[in-house]
Nucleic acid binder design. Structure first.
Lengths: 91, 91
DNA sequence: TCCTTATATTCCAAAAGTGGAATATTATAT
DNA sequence: ATATAATATTCCACTTTTGGAATATAAGGA
């Protein structure tokens, strides 16, 4: 297991891309199926959104759950939601 | 001025590097002079720390203040401190 | 003026990230 | 078995980041 600094750096790195941030913000109000996210963010390619979700999951920011053909993603840390909302108030 | 998503991505990008994170964490308990940070993080080169501070400042995460030969840096957003502390509790 | 201390900047090769296009996988229904 | 829908993966040229080494700048003191 990596040390804490590396783990945190990985979290921030996953959040450091505009597309991944938009994907994440889609999930601030709760779990969604990949297809819903694709539908909300039509401006991006399906593959791009899929890759974004996976990177966020690998960083520990999202968790997923499968049900038939669908995969549902949701936030795995309350911290993140609070921080994004705090930033949104201050920018 | 860029849009909010870009601004947030830039903040996360600035935080996405282990050295910059360590530098930032040095400042969680209050303003410090660059020389104090260099002294605390002896394992890194002076130039590396200087560049880290500047990148954090450019992202809007730190502010600085000059006094004679010294430059003092401090956090410019309460959000950040809360988030890092929340992460530290959860990792 | 010259020296010293504190901090910032430039240069650069290696490493990592980016996103589009095509393709693969997996699960379900017919 | 085959088709279809949902999601993931691979390939790849391009851009960006990284951090060390050397150098520059700015301020104060002798």
């Amino acid at each position: 297991m990596e040390n804490k600094i590396e783990t945190k750096a990985k979290i921030f790195k996953a959040l450091s891309n505009p597309v991944r941030l938009e994907v994440l913000e889609c999930l601030l109000d709760g779990e969604k199926c990949v297809c819903e996210i694709i539908d909300k963010l039509k401006k991006y390619e399906q593959a791009h959104i899929s890759k974004s979700l996976i990177k966020l999951k690998e960083a520990g920011i999202l968790k997923d759950r499968k049900n038939g053909l669908n995969v549902y993603y949701s936030l795995s840390m309350e911290c993140i939601k609070n921080f994004i909302e705090c930033l949104n108030l201050n920018l």
